[in-house]
Amino acid sequence: MKMKLKVMMPCSEAAHICDKSQYNESSVWEKIKLYTHILYCLTCRNYVKANKRLSLLIKKSQVTCLDKKNKESLKMNFQKALKHNEIK
């Protein structure tokens, strides 16, 4: 039986692939499908553009946050102080 390669896909799938590729989790075949899709789909083309820009901005800004362990210890200390405050 001859396998038919399916290039066309709905927009929801295109958006999903685009999201995945922001985290380098999409395969080459998925990327081919995505770029074929945005050739004719303006909505998805705009989404890809906005999504890439978001990734770029986040990378550029070097935002960071506390890791979980430190956050927990900070929270514990604060809870202690909070209790202490209520008793007073």
Partner: peptide
Amino acid sequence: LWVIIHRARTAMALCLKENW
């Protein structure tokens, strides 16, 4: 998870477009 990520990314992109 991917649905949530998608919604968050759409909102973030829009918000940054307005504020940046």
